[in-house]
Structures are given as C-alpha cells and as structure tokens.
Design a protein around this nucleic acid. Structure first.
Lengths: 258, 258
DNA sequence: ATGGACGTTGCAGAGAGCGCAACGACCGAA
DNA sequence: TTCGGTCGTTGCGCTCTCTGCAACGTCCAT
C-alpha cells in the first residue's frame, strides 16, 4: 500500500539471507543506489539494520529486542509455560507450544530436557505445515472454506515417505484431527521423530494454540509416546482452563525509554 | 531520513509495549487515522504486525523469523557455540556470548544447565552496559574518544550497592579491564550473581565478542568462580583462534521460499 | 597515473503519501 | 426501536516528500 515502506521492509528478508552491500540491495530492490541508501539509513536509525566494519549491512539488534518483547506479550505462552514445564518434568521429553498466524504456524515456547544445546534455535521458526502435529490441530480448526483454500495453496514436500503427500490427504487428515481432538506426527517430518499433540482452546471453544510432546524413536517407540496422549490432553485442557478463565487484569505499564 | 518509513518503523516499538488499536497508533504517531491505517497495512503485508480478533494490532510472526535468521547468520556465534557448550559441560554454570552493536551489548548465545526453563528469554535482550562483565570488555575495546563519549552519555542505575556509580568509575574500570584482558561483575547487577568474562578477538586483535560464566553465590562463592578464570580465558582464546583463522568458505545457499 | 567500483550529496521534477470529510458498521443508552 | 457515539474504512485533491540523475570523493587494483 505504501511504496516507500514496502521497499524498506523488503530489505529485511533480503538481509536475512546474509549481509549485503549498498549496490546489491539497490539491485535486488530494483531502485537507484541513492534510494536504497536512504531506506537503509532509516532502517539503521531504528536499529533494524546494522552496518558492519566492511560497510555491508546486516539485520540489527533492535530486531531481537522487538521479537523478544513481542513473545513476552503473548499471554497464552505465559499461562501455558508452567504447565509445559511440569509435563516436561514428568515425561522428560521435549514440549512445544505453537500458534497460528496469517497462514503460518510457529513455535512460541519450548521446554527441552535432553538437549539444552541450541535449544532456542527453533522458537519463532515457522513449522512444516503439512506434517507437524501442532499445525494439523491449528489448521483443522479453521473455517472449512479457509482450510480448503489453504490446503490447495500449500506445497507438500516429501520430507519422508510418511509425509502428507497432497491436499486431499491433508484435508482428510485435518478432518480426522478435528474430530478426535488430538494429532500426531509419526516420522512425517524427520524419519526418527515422533510427536503427539493436543489443542488449547479459548473461552469460545476456538483453538488458540497447540502443544506437543516429541521424542526420537531411539528413546521411546511411537507406541510408548502415544501412551502419553492422556497426559498431553490433560495438560492442554488445564492450560485451556487457565486461559479461558477470567483473563487476569493485566496492567500495561508504559516504561520510560529514551 | 525518510518520513514515511520512519513513521512506519516507529509503530513497532510502540506495539512492543502491547497491542493497540488504530486510533491509539494514530494518536501516538501524531498522524491521521487514515495514514496510520496505510502504514499498518503495509507492515501487515510484510508480516511484521498481526491483527488479532479484536482488530487490535500486535507485533507479527515474521519478526521472529527474521530475528531467528539474523542470529543464525552470525558466524561468531556459530564458531563459538561448541566451545561454550564444552565449558558449560565442565563447569556446569551458565555461559553467555555477547556482541556490541550501535551502543548496545546483547547476548547472542547462552548455554545453561541448571534452569532450562525460560532459557531463551534473555537471548537478544540488551545487557546492562555499566555493570555486565561482557559489556565492560566490549566497550573497553572502543577507541578512547568513543569510549569517553559513551561513558558520559550513559545512565548509571544503582542495581545494587556494587553497581558502577558514575562515568568516572566506569572509565576507570574499563581501563583496568582493557589492561588485564578480562572482566568481572561481582553482584553489580543482581546482588547474588557473580560473573567472569573474557574477550574474543578477530584477526586484527579487535574484540569482536565476549563470553562469560555466571553463577549465583549460593552455588559457588565469588572466589570459586574466579578460580575458573583460566578456563574461561582459555576457551575465549580457543574461540578467537578458530574465528581469526581462515574463515571457512561458507556457502550461502539460497533456499526456495514461497 | 588511470580506470573502475563504491558510497555519498544536492537538486529539480513528479509521483506518492497526506489529511480531510463522509460513509457504514457496531454498540449501548434512552 | 431510535439515536448518538465510536471505530475502521474509502476516495479525493493538494502538496510535500521521495525518487532518480549526475557529479564528486575515496579507495583499490591495474
């Protein structure tokens, strides 16, 4: 809608692929160097891009801070976290929390006991829509026309032989998931990883988030993991209850910054 | 520099404080509602803001993805990580990696064994400049005039009685740190937390990052923590060595997205 | 020395964003 | 039900701001 802003924002995903110099940015935007320079300067003033010693531009620090604050404002996450931690405590497996937003599903929280290394690396990362158990739950709750529209629009990458192959199979799967109120991913994304998930619902019954327990099958078999389903569902229900109960009157205090 | 972009970007920190509706955004920007609407729409198209059911705007998902990709492109972090993990393995304490950027110091990696819960919550968060050990190292390496300019510009919050009180003390501390090649924070930020840190240098000898080991003094005393200093310095030197050695010819594969 | 690549600046023209005003939807009070 | 208020949205004309150009300075390699 706004050309200037549109161009400026297009720089961000471009820089996400790696640092670039002024000329490269201008070329890939299809604008004159002077134009690109001004846009970059504005982005720089806001801390969204950073200029390294070699004069090339990178994504900047403020971006982290913003993502940081954003995730902290997600109240589902706040409410869910203790429950996730408790479940992790009992089972020892990785526990995820995910939400749906504008056609993407992303993890907004994760508790992992086994591999602390790079633990943060997937938070905020978009999830494989066609196979992930949490994605199935979140998408299964969409109104029928939207669900169908999305299903035909998606790609169906064959991560493994068990990946959902096409739109028809996906819609079928969503219908099943919708009906049974839980979902699995048995080696559909990575051959050796299994996953069971349950929905978290708001006061109006709509699915606002989904949680899952994942484990590699060298640790537990798919059957053993499925045995945890009741626990997972109970946890999800507990979160739903907390969440749909009277939302605590959260004071939004404005902090004094610069 | 660019008015439109400037206004659009100003919306982001505003929304970081919490969701806001159109009128609030327009007011706080000091522009007409229709203008704010257009800006928000453009931000929305790029996924930087999201519109919730109640029509209010929130920061969006793409922001996470961008911050995510940004952090993955930081090669210092990539190189340092195994070393940090190893040190964490040996000591059992929290290990941080931080860089300096535009007057801010921020953690870009963290390995923690003791409290997996909310582990990610500080990655990307700006560090308390005047007290954190990693900040001292990074700022101590700035050219003298910049260092001085920064020192007088800063605030010196008294987190604890041991916090750096003013610019003079801070510059003195930086001089010491610069000379000795390591730094500490003994209860300067939180009464019970101690911290020792060492610098990571590039091929030209400049400090490109800093790493630290932190522990609450209920676990180990300050003296015991200081005893780890040789290990910390050795780790930092190992990372420096890896980093300043011929940078591995990193293939930047462009992935197929949308 | 000389050519090229790169970032930067000032300028004038025009295209794009701006605020205005009016509309429709929604909600609660009378 | 009716009315007044609030909120998001749209079309339009004016003007301000962004754009691309051309020229300059610098750095580096030839």
């Amino acid at each position: 809608m706004s050309q200037t802003v549109d161009r400026a924002l297009s720089i961000l995903p471009l820089l996400a692929q790696g640092p670039a110099d002024l000329g490269q940015v201008a070329d890939r935007l299809g604008v004159h160097k002077s134009t690109a320079l001004r846009l970059l300067r504005t982005l720089h003033e806001h801390g969204l891009v950073y200029r390294q010693q070699d004069q090339r531009y990178r994504l900047g620090a403020r971006l982290f801070a913003l993502a940081q604050e954003a995730v902290e404002n997600l109240d589902v996450r706040e409410i869910a976290h203790p429950h996730l931690a408790a479940l992790n405590d009992r089972t020892g497996h990785t526990v995820h929390l995910a939400v749906h937003e504008d056609g993407e599903v992303l993890y907004i929280d994760k508790v992992e006991s086994r591999y602390p290394v790079r633990m943060y690396s997937r938070i905020g990362k978009p999830v494989a829509l066609t196979v992930a158990a949490v994605a199935k739950l979140l998408l299964a709750d969409l109104p029928e026309p939207e669900r169908r529209a999305l299903a035909v629009k998606l790609d169906y990458p064959r991560y493994t032989p068990r990946s959902t192959p096409d739109a028809a199979a996906f819609l079928q799967e969503l219908a099943t998931v919708r009906e049974q109120g839980w979902a699995t991913d048995l080696g559909g994304h990575e051959e050796s990883i299994n996953c069971v998930a349950a929905p978290i619902r708001g006061a109006d019954g709509r699915v606002v988030a989904a949680m899952s327990v994942s484990a590699p099958n060298v640790v537990v078999t798919a059957e053993e993991l499925l045995a945890l389903l009741p626990q997972v569902r109970r946890t999800a229900e507990a979160i739903s209850h907390d969440y749909s109960g009277t939302t605590p009157p959260k004071e939004t205090e404005v902090s004094v910054d610069e």
